[in-house]
Design a protein around this nucleic acid. Sequence first.
DNA 1: TGTTAGCACTCTTCACCATAGAGTGCTAAC
DNA 2: GTTAGCACTCTATGGTGAAGAGTGCTAACA
Lengths: 342, 342
Amino acid sequence: MLTDRKKKILQIVIEDYIATAEPVGSRTIARKYDLGISPATIRNEMSDLELLGFLEQPHTSAGRVPSAQAYRFYVDSMISPGALTDNDRALIDGWYRERVRSIDDIFQSTAKILSRMSKNVSMVLTNRDSSSCFSYMRFLPLDRNRAILCLITDDGNIDNCLVEVPLGMKQEELDYLAQRISNKLHGMKLSDIKENMLEELYVDLSGDKMLFTSLLKAVQQMSAGQQEQKMFLGGTKQLFNQPEFRDAERIKDLLGVLEEEKVLKDMLNAGTDSGLRITIGSENKFTSIQDCSMVQATYRLNGQVVGTMAVLGPTRMEYCKVISVMDYLHNYLQVVFDKAKT
Amino acid sequence: MLTDRKKKILQIVIEDYIATAEPVGSRTIARKYDLGISPATIRNEMSDLELLGFLEQPHTSAGRVPSAQAYRFYVDSMISPGALTDNDRALIDGWYRERVRSIDDIFQSTAKILSRMSKNVSMVLTNRDSSSCFSYMRFLPLDRNRAILCLITDDGNIDNCLVEVPLGMKQEELDYLAQRISNKLHGMKLSDIKENMLEELYVDLSGDKMLFTSLLKAVQQMSAGQQEQKMFLGGTKQLFNQPEFRDAERIKDLLGVLEEEKVLKDMLNAGTDSGLRITIGSENKFTSIQDCSMVQATYRLNGQVVGTMAVLGPTRMEYCKVISVMDYLHNYLQVVFDKAKT
DNA sequence: TGTTAGCACTCTTCACCATAGAGTGCTAAC
DNA sequence: GTTAGCACTCTATGGTGAAGAGTGCTAACA
């Protein structure tokens, strides 16, 4: 529908604007890029592109700026995200190696890498696997009146908390108790564990109400903790380097949104269907970021969505780079988790 | 050395400036506070105070602003931080109750509360108790070739990680192994555990080099994790509400500092001797925050420093309030930890 | 018919200037 | 020692004009 020349000019405008954050004028294009046509011709073409809704003018005497529609077109049919440069890959691998001790560290590193490479804010949301099942529990002795209650799920997650035990209660009794509860709950989804399931075990506790309630509380807390989605944020500082956030007010607004974990989770959970999702400007449902774009990818394990990562920034974003980086990270995480699982 | 009237005027200037962030003029003082003297007299007094180094003029025709020396004098001999209002206390107690599941949550909440009450950035640094000792370890079965290694310290901390075990190794063998290692390390400070201590146990592992190295790695990781200082940051968003951080550049600078965990830790570790420490403006050693003040308190358990909390903000800070809040939080934490210990 | 040079026009940005307002310092009187 | 009065200084604000960048239009050209 667009002539090749229009496409070319559109692409130049978009990419130049992405690079410079300045409205692009016909003269600039003629000077910087050798198209073999004069500024006047470019002007005519740009005028057409504006009528078609691809370009916008901040004001009469400024250059042109890509519209949301233009970015959409650009993303859908003008870019072909290639592989990262060796240099970038080395950087990423280095950052991952830097400090990864736990699963959480992996996500934290991912957020960091994503923000550094994209020069924007990044988010990583993990769905603690809601399908994980109770495997067994165990009391580890601590001192005369306390023990550590450990809860193990079938996927190898462990959670623990302190419980007070009646003075004089023997480890054997605790073991028996743990055995009973484990038998009762084994194989259940954590989300399905309800209070009343433990009630019939009450008798086994020799009527010790205190131990019973604290046990109950512990189990529930743990299953809640296991199900919780966890959010990792990276690179809020990057905002300051973006010209569109030059005034403190806008940064403040956006940081406000970023601090609302609930909103963020909703945002990220909204697009867990397809693999890669790009929402540009007003395409976004959440009004507070309607002048931003978000590139988002979900990662799965055995078909289950286990997490989402996203880059949030001004619509003027290096989509191509961002997508490449995400692709790389996506593969990286897939490998890590596959390995952890087997 | 200062007449009562000069003191009174100085106090008014300081407190008015703290409240409004506007230079205070003689006329304003005469109007707002009923001192029974005219603006001209106040002007004379202020002129004296300026000569003495307590007040400064941003420019000739502006009001006066307290100098660092003035804040120092104010903090040292003009305020007597009282108890918090019932309202504030209720707020704090509520926030603590809101979401406290783990030790880390307590620190996170403390940071949050501190920043909300002080309307400034807050930091909480925990010294994982470096004197905690190894109590015992235990393997919890997971599946055919993996187990969860749990490490318990004498103060009830538990850490865990996955280890691969040779196929066919029986739980009894693992238990025996854990027993041997526990005997060997029991009562040792985590920081004193060195690689070679485990080496003589190598034989017990029926020569399984893989298990041995992964065990070794696990123990070291855990003891490192236990010793690590952990930093909780709160309320960076507060910066935006402070007039002195109106331009994005200064916020950016400060946020840059706040992201440098190492610098922060040095800052907080620098003043762990006395209980409460207030550094005002250029008193601070770290150039990046020499236009800021920091109020800092350490908390101890059995004489050991276990953590530090601090509020960082412009020199124009509600010192009185900040100190009161810190005092309250300090007591709160003391109680919590004392209870956890016994 | 598409392309181009030329030119008038529009709009922003920046420096410059004048004015209003706030606050001071000084002097003289109380 | 205190105060009223007044000249002075400095900032903040709003208006003006020139420079610069970019456009749209027209007329000429290939």
